[in-house]
């Protein structure tokens, strides 16, 4: 009986000794360090796996002799690349929660236009700083990618030269992305039928955004408006 009480007192003393401010600070610091290392490891793995996926699509596209298959695989590769562009930007700065839309658009436009080899298509960027919660970055990236790729494929057929204007601007508490061209005009609206159009309409729904395509004479203008309510 007496031994039992003694044992319990010893336990209490032991807990008290462990719980000094110094040891608690050290434990917290260790826990934080472990968590940072884990975040870094996950980030590293995500980035490597995205690279692996694009490499696979690239290799398979090269192997195929069917133009339709090549086109589909290249489209998939472009979409994965848009998501990869997001991850290249994420966790680069100190803020892991926010995503710099303007910087991303600059990267993506350089990749999409540069990768297309269309030197006859010029780009004008007009980018205001807009921050987006990181969790919304990938759907936004895919949305902008669809509009850009669609404009590039349809606005300037037969090697026609032209200009694409990409703008990001704040609107009230939300923001808008605008893609305008001086190409061959409507009949090929940005939210065209087909898989690309489906992606645009699904993602607009997810992000609470409204997509509006108008005949800009010349060319086509598409504006996607993101109200503040869809951004949190």
């Amino acid at each position: 009986m007496q031994d039992d009480t003694q044992g319990r007192n010893e336990t209490v003393l032991l807990v008290a000794a462990q719980d000094t401010p110094d040891t608690r600070t050290r434990d917290l610091a260790n826990a934080l360090e472990q968590k940072s290392a884990l975040l870094h490891e996950v980030d590293h793995r995500v980035k490597n796996n995205l690279q692996l996926i694009t490499s696979l699509l690239r290799l398979q596209a090269r192997r195929s002799r069917d133009p339709a298959v090549q086109k589909a695989l290249t489209g998939a590769q472009e979409r994965i690349n848009a998501v990869a562009t997001v991850h290249r930007r994420l966790y680069r700065g100190e803020d892991v929660e926010l995503f710099d839309v303007a910087a991303f658009v600059e990267d993506l436009v350089a990749d999409v236009i540069g990768g297309s080899g269309r030197r006859d298509v010029r780009i004008r960027l007009s980018l205001e700083p807009v921050d987006l919660p990181a969790a919304r970055a990938a759907p936004l990236a895919l949305l902008i990618n669809e509009l850009l790729v669609n404009t590039l494929h349809h606005a300037f057929p037969g090697g026609r030269a032209g200009l694409i204007i990409v703008a990001v601007r704040r609107e009230g508490a939300g923001f808008a992305v605008e893609i305008a061209d001086n190409g061959v005009g409507s009949g090929t609206p940005a939210a065209a039928p087909g898989f690309g159009g489906t992606i645009v309409s699904l993602l607009c729904g997810q992000l609470g955004a409204r997509c509006e395509t108008t005949d800009a004479q010349p060319g086509v203008r598409t504006v996607i408006r993101f109200p503040a309510s869809g951004l949190s």
Binding site: K47, N48, L50, Q51, T54, R58, N81, A84, T85, H87, R88, A110, D111, G114, G115
Partner: peptide, 12 residues
């Protein structure tokens, strides 16, 4: 060159 890199980025 940071991963994930783009094809265009690597070529440039």
């Amino acid at each position: 060159i940071g991963k994930p890199y783009s094809e265009h980025g690597v070529k440039m």
